[in-house]
Design a protein around this nucleic acid. Structure first.
Lengths: 220, 220
DNA sequence: TTAATCTTTTAAGAATTCCTTAAGAATGGA
DNA sequence: TCCATTCTTAAGGAATTCTTAAAAGATTAA
């Protein structure tokens, strides 16, 4: 875990840095706002611990600067400023957590873990196949980075094929996936959608297994 | 913003519920651990505020149960248990934040906002999308710097879409966010609000994913 | 090669979904 | 209380998507 520690007090800074290192953090310790901004912008940290009372730039301004630079690293403010108003200002300026000095080291560590846990559970999964990318969250498909407009059935069919690229599906199996079991569709819907998908995404996107069914195409 | 409040003290519970409602939260207030688990599992909340001293199940166990059920909703513990060890236990059991009673209401609100922000892909206090800026602190929206007057439902819908610009939401999911469980809305409210938002903010603000739902529009 | 079978393509009517409008109900503030 | 705003419902019409059918094309086996 890579941590940027911004703390101008030498003694306290060393203490926190040691405690973090003891918990297997890789610590970068800086003592000024200027340094903090420059480090935050140049390296990707897992978390930033920020003191507000810095010698050069006020911590809140450092925070705002980092956020306006679109850096989304979780930031925990660690400061002596303890009024409710100051807390609200810190949190609303883009901090993820706010602790007051003097503080309890185990609590700090627990709060860092909580931040980390949430951060790592945020990743979204795309399904890729050659230059085709399917985004299940957005129900969107793109080819070479360009969005392709699919109807619902087209999307469902493609999604199903892309989930199991190796597997060949019979027409019946695909109809089954596309429709609620109560509906009975007696026609060539699957063929028609295969055709639509090939038209929109290229002929190779789906391979015909003659006499058996369809599967996702091979990548060239 | 949909909030599950778990607090067995009637007076305090009512107070927090009122404060949340005043900040335009849609509050579901329960007083037992059993209810808390059942609600958390059946509805998707934006945040859960959890007291630890509950009459039936201990709050920590409620928390663990919710987490083992793979529910990732941000949880803020609000309790009288104030020792460092208790805080660490709470955070390490899966809570995202920990506040001690008595507490400052504005700070609670700010921490809830911080949790919410963390959920969205953007980290600054404002959520921007093209020339549209949404300010969760003041629940205000502007376009090209000019304030736009939105009703509460319009704002909630927009906020929800803007929190996850790349995600497509079904109409049912959006209705779920806009209303409490006991309210059964059997109509086209979402469509109507989409229409209002488009009228006030431009047609491109929301994209229709036909047969699937809606998502925030693309930026040109 | 020919016949039989399977697949692709096209097109059009049917069905579904969405947009828009408007009016009555509910809510909240003066 | 009244007034203004907001919310909800309903319904017609517009737009897109779905399904079917049928013809054309491709492949295999005899």
């Amino acid at each position: 875990m890579k941590t940027l520690l911004v703390e101008d007090d030498p003694l306290l800074g060393q203490g926190i840095a040691d405690a973090l290192a003891y918990q297997s953090h890789l610590v970068e310790w800086v003592t000024t706002g200027r340094q903090a901004i420059s480090f935050a912008e140049s390296t990707e940290f897992d978390v930033i611990i920020l003191d507000l009372g810095l010698p050069d730039i006020d911590g809140l301004d450092v925070l705002k600067k980092i956020r306006t630079a679109k850096i989304t690293t979780p930031i925990l403010i660690l400061t002596a400023r303890s009024t409710p108003g100051e807390k609200v200002a810190g949190l609303d300026s883009g901090a993820d957590d706010y602790m007051i000095k003097p503080f309890d080291v185990p609590e700090l560590m627990a709060r860092l873990r909580a931040l980390q846990r949430r951060e790592s559970s945020q990743k979204s999964a795309f399904i890729c196949h050659g230059d085709i990318v399917l985004n299940p969250v957005g129900t969107a498909v793109s080819k070479k980075g360009i969005a392709v407009d699919l109807s619902r059935q087209e999307y469902d069919l493609l999604h199903h094929l892309m989930k199991r690229p190796e597997q060949t599906f019979t027409r019946e199996a695909l109809v089954d996936k596309l429709y609620n079991w109560d509906r009975n569709v007696e026609s060539n819907t699957v063929e028609v959608y295969v055709h639509h998908l090939r038209k929109k995404l290229g002929k190779e996107i789906i391979t015909t297994m003659r006499g058996i069914g369809y599967r996702l195409g091979d990548i060239h």
